[in-house]
Design a protein around this nucleic acid. Structure first.
Length: 829
DNA sequence: AGCACGCCGACT
DNA sequence: GTCGGCGTGCTC
């Protein structure tokens, strides 16, 4: 390629900030021809901020009204983001009405972003003499610290010194020229090294070894070290092995001390070296593919036939029907066709249970991508795909942004799951819907699986946009569990209730334990109790920043706000009237756990919720305890419903069913049906038939009829009619707009004005609100909501979005409303 | 989104 | 008089 050296090149870059457009930088001479679309560059953005940006376009047109700043550094010679990814990111930015910068922020693992950190240093001319000048006590304290720790970060100082208004103090000292502030750039990702050891290249024959042994003579420790090495490395049989060496830690572990190794290295007999290793590497595949039942086999054939028609396929397979085995077969076939595969999972389902199973089949080709992984680990999955090492990715929603270049199959497991939807921050995207676009871009097959499909997906099958494949029998002929309803009004009347559990529930738990079986108790609320109430004056402990009551957490001995995380000590007396008669109202998983251990002291009870699974291996510990039979009863939130499979669980109880229907949301019925069906599906997955017990004051509720008959289709018919009647999805598309302001009045005013603008064109019938949500204040912001319904047939979606953007722009740039924050959520969950 | 600049009230 | 509050504008 010929280069015109006179032309100055420019690059339009995407900055990872909420700004609508790209920014143009000049490509310095030394980087000419090297910068291309999809590479990361380091640029100065604003006065001092140094950021990582993505090159979007390289061109020769200098900006007309300003002088472009130069690109400081190029991080990738080869594009990090390919054209498929750009297309997908563009789609997300347009469909979900957010900026490309916001999309880049979720698409790139944080490990790819360099961060600049302000470092502080004493000005050289003050180094020795600051003590003689007149500074305040605080200033001397600070200067002493900085002179002892040259180029220290702001964070470091604020942690180690207790100085109020540290920021202002530093600023004034900078102004006086006593301190210097500079930006230090650091790449976040660091590869993992392993120290290896090998024999020197001069030792390359049996004779050389024999001579060496003779030379070492009585130095037994060194001889022992070499003998261990030769065995571990298998050097004598294959001299080539020596080049790979062995792990230093493995060899030193066999010895009494490291000193013989040090001596051998010092004398040039052995050599140490380092290699970069992946942080996450699975072993070779060990298992042949699973065998399918006749029914599964038929189902697989149906799916493949549907794939031929290039439509998405919905697999409606009841719980325990063996969807995973089908996935494995499909993945295997895609791999044989040399293409990449993405298997999406909801957040919590991504547990070692499934990963272990898949790695047995796919070995080192499998990459795992999810939130409990560190930044470094995520970067390695990314580069693993780029290098071709990883072919199958199992991941959560953000895995759709990985650098696939040859995707053949996408599977969305538990497609109904609402954790596919990101609600905050922007981009508020739905992993399932973006996965559909991803498959479309790659011309890949896409399969969505669920025992309880979302109404939207099932509707798309009914209307022939997708194909439907059903798997209506459990694997190994296990039966679906029996669902029993317990009438709580009746039980209360006959004094059969103890600590929230009716007599029969407790009896079943007891019986189950005595038979060596295990039980699950589902309760969708964490903490001990949702409220702490004063019995004398009625005072309820609430959050200062949000309009909610604080949840009582016994385990952490504190009151916690579930919306902003604000935590306070449990008061010993009422903050309002001083009374000591404080009681908890309602119950969370902690209280259920406590009540059960009071009622059934012979049972070992464990709890699984967001609190008990916070640490990286917290979840695993609970699962292992259950697997090994150390737990008789597991109490938990909806985490229980996600994809686990235990042979000895044959009883599931839901003590507070009624609470689940209380949410003021058009999806409340659908959610409840899905959740209960999924939790129920954990019972009796092997030979013996399981039992589900549901306590309710309304045991005749229609929803319970369909749940107990395991009748998804029946439920669907009822619910879809409701959606049609009240203009909800799938018959309309929803866009939810939230107006936030620290001033309640201002939030209301902005929302009203925005509503007036929107409804002028979209119509008042399709522009609901504005109204304050049930929780009208979160993190000190007052909230107002507007809900827009867009008719699927009569209204053009992208035109409507354009209009909405225009309205919002008008509001946010007006003088009166500019303090309000406006957030858009397309297809809110 | 951040972040610096700039204009007004509560203090030494 | 100054410190620091927060409204306002800008980032190539």
């Amino acid at each position: 390629m010929e280069e015109n050296l006179d032309l100055i090149e420019f690059a339009d870059v995407i900055v990872p900030v909420k700004v609508p457009q790209c920014y143009t930088y000049q490509i310095p001479h030394k980087l000419k021809g090297k910068v291309s679309k999809g590479s990361r560059v380091i640029v100065e953005f604003g006065r001092k901020k140094i950021i990582t940006a993505i090159v979007h376009l390289v061109h020769e047109h200098p900006p007309k009204v300003y002088k472009a700043k130069p690109i400081l550094e190029l991080l990738d010679e080869q594009a990090l983001i390919n054209s498929y990814q750009f297309e997908l990111m563009n789609f997300v930015s347009q469909y979900y009405m957010c900026t490309m910068g916001e999309v880049v922020n979720v698409a790139l693992p944080a490990g790819f972003k360099i961060s600049s950190e302000s470092k502080i240093q004493l000005h050289p001319s003050y180094e020795s003499e600051y003590k003689t000048l007149s500074f305040s006590e605080e200033e001397i304290k600070l200067l002493d610290y900085i002179s002892k720790h040259p180029s220290v970060s702001f964070e470091n100082i604020s942690i180690n010194l207790e100085i109020i208004n540290l920021n202002t103090l530093i600023k004034s000292l900078v102004r006086e020229g006593v301190l210097l502030v500079f930006e230090e750039i650091k790449e976040k990702y660091s590869p993992k090294f392993v120290k290896k050891i090998k024999l020197s290249n001069s030792i390359n024959s049996i004779q050389a070894i024999e001579k060496l042994m003779k030379d070492l003579e009585k130095k037994t420790a060194q001889i022992e070290a070499i003998q261990h090495y030769l065995v571990l490395n298998n050097t004598i049989q294959h001299w080539a092995n020596n080049q790979q060496g062995i792990d230093y830690s493995v060899l030193s572990g066999r010895l009494n001390s490291q000193s013989p190794l040090n001596t051998l290295v010092k004398n040039g007999v052995m050599e140490e070296f380092c290699v970069v290793v992946p942080r996450f590497e699975l072993s070779e595949e060990t298992s042949p593919l699973p065998t399918l039942s006749n029914l599964q086999y038929q189902c697989l054939a149906d799916i493949e036939k549907s794939f031929e028609g290039n439509k998405p396929v919905l697999l409606h397979g009841i719980t325990g029907s063996g969807k995973t085995e089908l996935y494995v077969q499909l993945i295997h076939k895609a791999l044989q066709g040399e293409s990449q595969v993405l298997l999406l999972m909801p957040e919590i389902a991504l547990t070692t249970q499934l990963v272990n199973r898949l790695q047995k089949y796919f070995g080192k080709q499998l990459g795992v991508y999810h939130s409990k992984f560190s930044d470094n680990e995520r970067v390695e999955v990314w580069t693993g795909i780029l290098s071709g090492r990883l072919k199958v990715i199992i991941g959560v929603r953000s895995a759709i942004f990985l650098p696939f270049d040859n995707l053949g199959l996408v599977i969305v497991d538990e497609e109904h799951d609402s954790s596919y939807k990101q609600s905050d921050p922007a981009p508020r995207y739905h992993g399932k819907d973006v996965a559909l676009m991803l498959a479309k871009i790659h011309h890949a097959r896409i399969l969505l699986g669920s025992a309880t499909p979302s109404l939207e997906s099932y509707y798309l099958c009914q209307s022939k946009h997708w194909d439907l494949v059903k798997l209506k029998q459990r694997y190994g002929n296990a039966e679906l569990p029996e669902v029993a309803r317990v009438d709580m009004a009746y039980e209360q009347k006959h004094k059969n209730v103890k600590l929230g559990f009716s007599h029969q529930l407790l009896e079943h738990l007891k019986k189950n334990k005595s038979q060596g079986m295990q039980s699950l108790v589902f309760h969708n609320r964490r903490g001990y109790a949702p409220q702490l109430v004063c019995e004398d004056c009625g005072f309820v402990s609430g959050c200062d920043h949000c309009n909610v009551s604080l949840t009582y957490h016994q385990y952490k001995a504190s009151l916690i706000c579930h919306y902003c995380g604000y935590t306070e000590q449990i008061p010993s007396c009422c903050p309002a009237c001083g009374s000591t008669r404080l009681v908890t109202k309602g119950s969370g998983t902690e209280k259920i756990e406590e009540n059960l251990s009071l009622a059934l002291p012979e049972c070992k009870i464990d709890r699984m919720d967001a609190d008990s699974t916070k640490s990286k291996h917290g979840y695993q510990k609970i699962i292992t305890a259950l697997e090994q039979g150390d737990t008789d009863i597991l109490v938990g939130t909806q985490m229980l419903s996600k994809g686990f499979d235990f042979a000895k669980v044959n009883l599931v109880q839901i003590p507070e069913f009624d609470r689940m229907l209380q949410f003021p949301d058009f999806r409340a019925h659908e959610r409840t049906f899905q959740l209960i069906s999924q939790v129920s599906g954990r019972a009796g997955r092997r030979a013996e038939k399981g039992l589900v017990q549901i306590q309710s004051y309304k045991p005749k509720h229609w929803l319970l009829d369909y749940i107990s008959k395991h009748d998804y289709e029946g439920f669907y018919e009822i619910e879809i009619a409701e959606r049609k009647k009240f203009l909800y999805p799938p018959f309309t598309r929803l866009i939810s707009i939230t107006v936030k302001n620290t001033d309640q009045k201002k939030a209301e005013n902005t929302a009203q004005e925005l509503h007036a603008l929107l409804s002028s064109k979209l119509g008042t019938k399709h522009t609901l609100g504005p109204e304050a949500p049930t929780i009208n204040k979160i993190k000190n912001y007052y909230l107002q909501k507007i809900l827009i319904k867009i008719d699927r047939n009569k209204q053009n979606l992208s035109l409507s979005k354009e209009f909405i953007s225009k309205c919002i722009f008008e509001i946010t740039t007006s003088k009166i409303h500019r303090t309000s924050i406006i957030q858009i959520d397309v297809d809110p969950a």
